[in-house]
Amino acid sequence: MKMIFGRPLGLTETLQRYCPGCGHGIVHRIIGELLVKLDIRERTIGIAPVGCSVFADEYFNCDMIQPPHGRGPAIATGLKRTRPECIVFSYQGDGDLAAMGTAEIIHAAARSENITVIFINNAIFGMTGGQMAPTTLPGMKSTTSVKGRDIGKQGFPIKVCEMLASLDGPYYLERCAVDTPRNVIRTEKALKTAFANQISNKGFSMVEILSMCPTGWGQTPVQAKKWLGEVMAEYYPLGVFRDLSKEEK
Protein backbone atom coordinates (compact mmCIF):
# COMPACT_ATOMS: atom_id res chain seq x y z
CA MET A 1 0.00 0.00 0.00
CA LYS A 2 1.10 3.49 -0.78
CA MET A 3 0.71 6.54 1.49
CA ILE A 4 -1.53 9.05 -0.27
CA PHE A 5 -1.83 11.49 2.64
CA GLY A 6 0.73 12.00 5.39
CA ARG A 7 3.29 14.29 6.97
CA PRO A 8 5.08 16.11 4.11
CA LEU A 9 8.88 16.27 3.78
CA GLY A 10 8.63 20.04 3.96
CA LEU A 11 8.01 19.70 7.70
CA THR A 12 10.61 18.52 10.18
CA GLU A 13 9.89 15.57 12.45
CA THR A 14 9.52 17.94 15.40
CA LEU A 15 6.06 17.71 16.93
CA GLN A 16 4.27 21.02 17.02
CA ARG A 17 3.56 22.68 20.32
CA TYR A 18 0.29 24.31 19.30
CA CYS A 19 -2.87 23.82 21.32
CA PRO A 20 -5.35 21.14 20.20
CA GLY A 21 -7.43 22.43 17.30
CA CYS A 22 -5.15 25.36 16.49
CA GLY A 23 -5.21 26.37 12.82
CA HIS A 24 -1.46 27.00 12.57
CA GLY A 25 -0.77 23.30 12.12
CA ILE A 26 -3.09 23.03 9.12
CA VAL A 27 -1.35 25.92 7.39
CA HIS A 28 2.08 24.54 8.30
CA ARG A 29 1.13 21.25 6.68
CA ILE A 30 0.02 23.02 3.49
CA ILE A 31 3.27 25.00 3.26
CA GLY A 32 5.28 21.86 4.00
CA GLU A 33 3.56 20.10 1.11
CA LEU A 34 4.05 23.01 -1.28
CA LEU A 35 7.79 23.20 -0.56
CA VAL A 36 8.01 19.66 -1.94
CA LYS A 37 5.35 19.85 -4.66
CA LEU A 38 6.84 23.01 -6.17
CA ASP A 39 10.36 21.60 -5.70
CA ILE A 40 11.53 24.72 -3.83
CA ARG A 41 12.40 23.33 -0.40
CA GLU A 42 16.13 23.44 -1.04
CA ARG A 43 16.10 27.08 -2.11
CA THR A 44 13.53 28.44 0.31
CA ILE A 45 14.18 30.74 3.27
CA GLY A 46 11.26 30.98 5.66
CA ILE A 47 10.65 33.74 8.15
CA ALA A 48 8.99 32.91 11.44
CA PRO A 49 7.04 35.59 13.32
CA VAL A 50 6.86 36.45 16.98
CA GLY A 51 3.75 34.93 18.51
CA CYS A 52 2.59 31.34 18.88
CA SER A 53 4.29 30.40 15.65
CA VAL A 54 7.65 31.78 16.80
CA PHE A 55 8.65 28.11 16.80
CA ALA A 56 7.90 27.80 13.12
CA ASP A 57 11.67 27.88 12.62
CA GLU A 58 11.71 24.40 14.16
CA TYR A 59 8.84 23.08 12.06
CA PHE A 60 9.61 23.99 8.46
CA ASN A 61 12.24 21.80 6.86
CA CYS A 62 14.10 24.62 5.11
CA ASP A 63 16.43 27.49 6.02
CA MET A 64 14.68 29.73 8.54
CA ILE A 65 15.20 33.07 10.24
CA GLN A 66 13.47 34.49 13.28
CA PRO A 67 13.07 38.28 13.18
CA PRO A 68 11.84 40.93 15.61
CA HIS A 69 8.07 41.19 16.00
CA GLY A 70 6.46 42.53 12.84
CA ARG A 71 9.64 42.98 10.81
CA GLY A 72 9.28 39.89 8.65
CA PRO A 73 8.57 41.79 5.42
CA ALA A 74 11.71 43.91 5.93
CA ILE A 75 13.84 40.83 6.59
CA ALA A 76 12.25 39.21 3.54
CA THR A 77 13.19 42.26 1.47
CA GLY A 78 16.81 42.02 2.57
CA LEU A 79 16.93 38.29 1.87
CA LYS A 80 15.14 38.36 -1.47
CA ARG A 81 17.04 41.35 -2.83
CA THR A 82 20.40 39.76 -2.06
CA ARG A 83 19.39 36.19 -2.98
CA PRO A 84 16.82 36.57 -5.76
CA GLU A 85 17.33 32.91 -6.66
CA CYS A 86 15.84 31.89 -3.30
CA ILE A 87 12.14 31.62 -2.45
CA VAL A 88 11.34 33.75 0.57
CA PHE A 89 8.17 33.47 2.62
CA SER A 90 7.15 35.43 5.67
CA TYR A 91 4.75 33.69 8.06
CA GLN A 92 3.00 36.20 10.31
CA GLY A 93 0.23 36.40 12.84
CA ASP A 94 -2.17 39.30 13.38
CA GLY A 95 -0.16 40.94 16.16
CA ASP A 96 2.97 40.58 14.08
CA LEU A 97 1.58 41.78 10.76
CA ALA A 98 -1.37 44.01 11.61
CA ALA A 99 -0.08 45.72 14.78
CA MET A 100 3.70 45.95 15.20
CA GLY A 101 4.51 45.36 11.57
CA THR A 102 1.85 47.49 9.89
CA ALA A 103 4.39 49.80 8.30
CA GLU A 104 6.59 46.94 7.12
CA ILE A 105 3.77 45.00 5.43
CA ILE A 106 2.27 48.07 3.78
CA HIS A 107 5.57 49.19 2.32
CA ALA A 108 6.69 45.72 1.24
CA ALA A 109 3.33 45.45 -0.56
CA ALA A 110 3.67 48.95 -2.02
CA ARG A 111 7.14 48.11 -3.34
CA SER A 112 5.68 44.82 -4.56
CA GLU A 113 8.61 42.90 -3.16
CA ASN A 114 8.73 39.52 -4.85
CA ILE A 115 7.91 37.59 -1.69
CA THR A 116 5.11 35.40 -0.33
CA VAL A 117 3.38 36.42 2.87
CA ILE A 118 1.19 34.05 4.85
CA PHE A 119 -0.95 35.98 7.29
CA ILE A 120 -2.69 34.02 10.03
CA ASN A 121 -5.69 35.96 11.31
CA ASN A 122 -7.17 34.40 14.44
CA ALA A 123 -8.48 37.67 15.87
CA ILE A 124 -6.55 37.27 19.11
CA PHE A 125 -3.08 37.35 20.66
CA GLY A 126 -2.52 33.66 21.34
CA MET A 127 0.96 33.43 22.76
CA THR A 128 0.71 36.23 25.27
CA GLY A 129 -2.53 34.88 26.65
CA GLY A 130 -5.54 35.96 24.62
CA GLN A 131 -5.31 39.74 24.54
CA MET A 132 -7.08 41.89 21.98
CA ALA A 133 -5.55 41.89 18.51
CA PRO A 134 -5.96 44.54 15.80
CA THR A 135 -8.24 41.98 14.17
CA THR A 136 -10.39 41.23 17.24
CA LEU A 137 -14.03 41.62 16.20
CA PRO A 138 -16.26 44.36 17.64
CA GLY A 139 -17.79 43.01 20.83
CA MET A 140 -15.41 40.06 20.96
CA LYS A 141 -14.04 39.25 24.39
CA SER A 142 -10.33 39.07 25.13
CA THR A 143 -8.22 39.48 28.26
CA THR A 144 -7.80 43.18 27.46
CA SER A 145 -11.39 43.66 26.31
CA VAL A 146 -13.15 41.58 28.93
CA LYS A 147 -16.59 43.00 28.20
CA GLY A 148 -16.05 42.73 24.47
CA ARG A 149 -14.15 45.04 22.14
CA ASP A 150 -15.62 48.50 22.55
CA ILE A 151 -15.21 50.19 19.21
CA GLY A 152 -15.76 53.57 20.85
CA LYS A 153 -12.68 53.13 22.98
CA GLN A 154 -10.71 50.42 21.26
CA GLY A 155 -11.39 51.20 17.67
CA PHE A 156 -12.27 49.03 14.72
CA PRO A 157 -10.52 45.90 13.50
CA ILE A 158 -8.14 46.18 10.57
CA LYS A 159 -9.14 44.34 7.43
CA VAL A 160 -5.72 43.66 6.01
CA CYS A 161 -6.67 42.32 2.57
CA GLU A 162 -8.98 45.27 1.95
CA MET A 163 -6.34 47.69 3.17
CA LEU A 164 -3.56 46.27 1.01
CA ALA A 165 -5.93 46.06 -1.95
CA SER A 166 -6.05 49.87 -1.87
CA LEU A 167 -2.39 49.85 -2.96
CA ASP A 168 -1.23 49.46 -6.54
CA GLY A 169 1.73 47.30 -5.52
CA PRO A 170 0.37 43.86 -4.60
CA TYR A 171 0.11 41.24 -7.31
CA TYR A 172 -2.10 38.79 -5.47
CA LEU A 173 -4.23 39.04 -2.32
CA GLU A 174 -6.68 36.42 -1.12
CA ARG A 175 -8.48 35.66 2.12
CA CYS A 176 -9.10 32.01 2.96
CA ALA A 177 -10.02 29.98 6.02
CA VAL A 178 -9.15 26.58 7.47
CA ASP A 179 -12.39 25.72 9.24
CA THR A 180 -13.64 23.09 6.78
CA PRO A 181 -11.95 20.65 4.38
CA ARG A 182 -13.44 22.61 1.49
CA ASN A 183 -11.89 25.86 2.77
CA VAL A 184 -8.60 24.09 3.49
CA ILE A 185 -8.46 22.94 -0.13
CA ARG A 186 -9.12 26.49 -1.25
CA THR A 187 -6.30 27.69 1.04
CA GLU A 188 -4.00 25.10 -0.55
CA LYS A 189 -4.78 26.55 -3.97
CA ALA A 190 -4.27 30.12 -2.80
CA LEU A 191 -0.92 29.36 -1.21
CA LYS A 192 0.20 27.48 -4.28
CA THR A 193 -0.66 30.52 -6.38
CA ALA A 194 1.18 32.79 -3.94
CA PHE A 195 4.38 30.72 -4.18
CA ALA A 196 4.04 30.21 -7.93
CA ASN A 197 3.79 33.99 -8.36
CA GLN A 198 7.11 34.40 -6.61
CA ILE A 199 8.73 31.65 -8.67
CA SER A 200 7.74 33.50 -11.83
CA ASN A 201 8.84 36.88 -10.38
CA LYS A 202 5.38 38.42 -10.28
CA GLY A 203 5.82 40.44 -7.10
CA PHE A 204 4.05 40.66 -3.79
CA SER A 205 1.55 37.93 -2.90
CA MET A 206 -0.26 37.56 0.41
CA VAL A 207 -2.77 35.00 1.60
CA GLU A 208 -4.73 35.92 4.71
CA ILE A 209 -5.98 32.84 6.48
CA LEU A 210 -8.77 32.91 9.06
CA SER A 211 -7.66 30.41 11.64
CA MET A 212 -9.02 28.91 14.84
CA CYS A 213 -7.65 29.76 18.26
CA PRO A 214 -9.80 27.66 20.59
CA THR A 215 -7.72 28.52 23.66
CA GLY A 216 -7.72 32.25 23.03
CA TRP A 217 -11.40 32.26 22.14
CA GLY A 218 -12.36 30.19 25.19
CA GLN A 219 -14.01 27.55 23.02
CA THR A 220 -13.59 23.89 22.20
CA PRO A 221 -11.91 23.20 18.84
CA VAL A 222 -15.24 22.18 17.35
CA GLN A 223 -16.98 25.31 18.68
CA ALA A 224 -14.10 27.39 17.34
CA LYS A 225 -14.40 26.13 13.78
CA LYS A 226 -18.14 26.80 13.87
CA TRP A 227 -17.61 30.32 15.23
CA LEU A 228 -15.04 30.99 12.54
CA GLY A 229 -17.44 29.97 9.79
CA GLU A 230 -20.51 31.65 11.20
CA VAL A 231 -19.18 34.85 12.80
CA MET A 232 -15.62 35.61 11.81
CA ALA A 233 -15.98 34.87 8.10
CA GLU A 234 -19.01 37.18 8.08
CA TYR A 235 -16.85 40.09 9.24
CA TYR A 236 -13.86 39.06 7.13
CA PRO A 237 -15.36 37.89 3.83
CA LEU A 238 -13.38 35.22 2.00
CA GLY A 239 -12.29 35.75 -1.56
CA VAL A 240 -9.72 37.14 -3.95
CA PHE A 241 -8.99 40.83 -3.41
CA ARG A 242 -6.33 41.20 -6.08
CA ASP A 243 -5.12 38.94 -8.83
CA LEU A 244 -3.17 40.73 -11.53
CA SER A 245 -2.77 37.51 -13.50
CA LYS A 246 -6.43 37.93 -14.47
CA GLU A 247 -5.65 41.34 -15.93
CA GLU A 248 -2.63 40.01 -17.79
CA LYS A 249 -4.89 37.59 -19.69
Binding site: I65, P67, P68, R71, A74, I75, A76, T77, G78, L79, K80, R81, T82, A103, E104, H107
Partner: peptide, 10 residues
Protein backbone atom coordinates in the same frame (compact mmCIF):
# COMPACT_ATOMS: atom_id res chain seq x y z
CA UNK B 1 13.28 50.04 11.92
CA UNK B 2 12.68 48.59 8.52
CA UNK B 3 16.19 49.51 7.38
CA UNK B 4 17.95 47.62 10.15
CA UNK B 5 15.77 44.58 9.57
CA UNK B 6 16.46 44.58 5.84
CA UNK B 7 20.09 44.58 6.88
CA UNK B 8 19.39 41.63 9.16
CA UNK B 9 17.94 39.76 6.18
CA UNK B 10 20.67 40.69 3.73
Amino acid sequence: ISAINMLFGA
